[in-house]
Design a protein around this nucleic acid. Structure first.
Lengths: 219, 219, 219, 219
DNA sequence: CATGAATGAGCTTTCATTCAT
DNA sequence: GATGAATGAAAGCTCATTCAT
């Protein structure tokens, strides 16, 4: 797992100082939780994979639940939030000839990030339905996302869409989650890399048409 | 949970005879698994909620895993499959004025079924990522679905779409799962009933535009 | 197991009337106890092998322990006792040229019986060390055995042995149990049939010499 | 059980380091297994008798079966093997006037060891008939025993016996097991100490005569 | 601090036994 | 009588957590 960028993001959060040993623990926990699930992973397994004593796991994280909450909190903070907003400013400032071009650029950007972050999302998705604290955390972060900016950009590229901002955001989220959820989290084995790229292009074409206003269509 | 239709569908599968006590066990297990997750639910809890002895849980289901696999198998068989295909034949034979009308009818149909089946989907989604057997079961069932018929109907309603059948199916699945996954499984509390209906209408409008072929748009 | 004579002896004890169903249960229990041990055999297994309902096992035998005690009691009564004494009267009345001839005849007799009764002895040996009731039962039966007659016969065949009766009995029991215990109960796989017969002949030669009195040896 | 020498032998095997707590567990397990049998002893009972937590039983021995196999392996290694071969070298080098003297010395030696090791033999005997692994272990060890040396000594003491080595070994094993099996394992209460010594002397006299060759007897 | 042996509550599972049918 | 579903105590075993070293 050495190669994942988000791991470094999670581990090198400047607001908290964690020792190298603790980094090993978190790294091991993320790997195991995403492969086997939280409940099916024992603290002993985590300690062994991390190469530390079982007792050390409980030094920074008094309980196993604290460990996963720490991980999820930092996934949201350092990975989920940047995942959605990263490169948004650049995208926003760059002019696009068409809505399709913009969506393609946007999707391509997310595609890489989501594929790389798959282990994190698996952890999130497992725990969200059963942990209200996590849902609350997520919703709070959501509000900070520059979703309205994306929507505005879409509206003003080409001719104005006749969907309002909130609808646009909802539609984008729907398509994004629908696309990645089945392909990466649920059925990774049936969606090889090259097919994902192709499917994404089709989806973007579909979306760029969908956003066209009645007016545009009649041009 | 008495009120859920699918419970009766699951419990009254004619190919298998299960006793009333076993129905109580399955009912309790579904409720607890969907609320707390499989791993976090003990067989003792299930027995208590069902009002039977712990030993009775193991009469029909030799292991706890057999219990959840039974449930998932029957969810797929009696609920997931009908969920997607129910009313499809009627929809297919009925003429629609526009693609939007057809999609609206289709979505409305699914909406009810999915909302009602939410506990089942929560169980499925938790276990899919960690149980290859379940993924295999699902993929097998998927092949039996009349997805191509839906796609054909869409193509032939109004003027032909220039997406091919497979793309159409993928897009519909993407939109459906994206729509319901976030609204019902992940964040049920932030999507009240009336908003779901409104959002669905917006999505359908978006989709019906998206499926328009270039030709149509230029008419 | 149909072919074992002792089974009929056990099952057709005239002093107790047992139904055909009960015979099936006893037959199954003997087979399973001797193969797997008492504790490792469940009442369900017995019922299944016997082809009866679990409840039926508890009709004649209120507890599982009652079942094995019944079996052991009847093994001792109908099999162990006859095993040691069967044919003794004939042997006693027949004249033998030498002590070796007599011992050979005696051993041959026992050999068959013990080999056939092996499953019964396995059951006995397992339970003797842990059940004082069984030990008491056995010791009571032992007293009834015509051991003294055998000893007398040995003494009077050829020239008198200078061992007394009790010693002779002890020696015979020692040699018999030592011979069969290792060969049939403990390591059946390393003692093929033909080797047992040969070993028995050697042992008998050894014994017949051992019983020779000092006087005899000097003749 | 503090007083048994073999316990120290088992517990202080230099090739394996076991903690004091583990020694308590093994000690308790041996005591309970030999009194009640393996299947009738629960891990909870063992833990209580050892004065440790139940979980600790499973630290060194992942399953209950591993525990008894460890014990049996170490009984064979540190007790059964020495039991048969201990003092053999001294016996072999010492000259004896007669075969009876040699056998007496040999028996006396074993007598003490077997009486003291009775609990171990009870464990062995219970499990041998049902556990092929144990039989295999035993047979392997048997091959390493200096049985042929004993046989040679017997042959060369006084005048040559006309039994061959294998026969001599078989006869000795038959007499030894027959003697101890009934007296110590099966019916310990009916053979008081003083009687065992006397019986052993009679048996040895019997055996020393039995081994005499025809030639010798005619001298 | 780091360790990992020790803990014991609690898990899944088994099984002798009961009893309504 | 015969049945086998139902029972629940108790089994083997796991695991988050503690704490002496």
């Amino acid at each position: 797992m050495e190669e994942y960028k988000w791991l470094n993001n999670i581990l090198n959060d400047d607001t908290e100082k964690i020792t190298d040993k603790q980094k090993l623990i978190i790294r091991a926990a993320i790997e195991l939780f995403s492969k086997q699930g939280y409940a099916a992973t024992s603290t002993r397994e985590i300690a062994q994979k991390a190469g530390v004593a079982e007792g050390s796991v409980f030094k920074l994280f008094p309980t196993k639940k604290d460990l996963i909450l720490w991980i999820i909190k930092h996934i949201i903070k350092t990975s989920l939030f940047p995942l959605i907003s990263s490169g948004i400013n650049e995208l926003m400032e760059k002019p696009f000839n068409s809505r399709e071009d913009f969506l393609n650029a946007f999707f391509e950007n997310r595609l890489e990030l989501i594929q790389e972050g798959a282990p994190l999302f698996k952890i999130l998705i497992q725990e969200i339905p059963f942990q209200p604290e996590i849902r609350a955390m997520l919703l709070e972060q959501f509000k900070k996302l520059p979703l309205d900016i994306i929507a505005k950009k879409l509206i003003t590229t080409e001719i104005n869409s006749d969907f309002n901002e909130i609808d646009i955001i909802n539609i984008i989220i729907t398509c994004l989650t629908g696309f990645f959820f089945s392909r990466i989290i649920m059925f990774p084995e049936i969606f090889p890399e090259n097919r994902i790229k192709n499917d994404a292009a089709v989806l973007v074409r579909f979306m760029s048409r969908g956003f066209k206003s009645e007016k545009e269509q009649n041009l």
